[in-house]
């Protein structure tokens, strides 16, 4: 079963620190691969921190680990992810004559998936 959310990719200070440490480093890769979900949405969907979900947008699909957004930070119905490789995979090529692809505030379908095994 899937549900539609609005995804907001954005900057975080941890992501900024990670860029300086190196894009193949743990800080950066750890930050850009975690999806923040509002506590109310997590409860309703029956998901807990560390669960994995699949996001499917008009232009792509990504699998990400869930963490809980801080209290009150995200309204229900909104998801947040640190801007980076994964969030960019959901962007389309069309910029609507602006040069800027729609990179924030687009619809995604969220479905829970089994936690991938660590190889």
């Amino acid at each position: 079963m899937s549900e539609t959310f609005i995804l907001i990719p954005g900057r975080t200070s941890k992501q900024g620190v990670g860029i300086n440490e190196g894009k193949y480093g743990e800080t950066y890769l750890g930050e850009i691969t975690k999806l923040q979900v509002a506590p109310g949405d997590m409860e309703r969907l029956g998901i807990t921190e560390g669960d994995w979900v699949r996001l499917t947008g008009e232009h792509g699909t990504i699998d990400v680990e869930v963490i809980s957004a801080k209290k009150d930070e995200l309204p229900e119905g909104l998801l947040f992810i640190a801007y980076g490789d994964l969030s960019s995979r959901l962007m389309g090529g069309d910029t609507h004559g602006s040069g800027m692809p729609t990179s924030k505030g687009f619809d995604v379908e969220l479905e829970t998936i089994p936690t991938p095994s660590k190889s």
Partner: peptide, 13 residues
């Protein structure tokens, strides 16, 4: 001409 000569567009097309 943004949308025509901007990098994302020139590459995506």
């Amino acid at each position: 001409n943004p949308g025509e000569y901007t990098a994302s567009d020139v590459l995506a097309r």
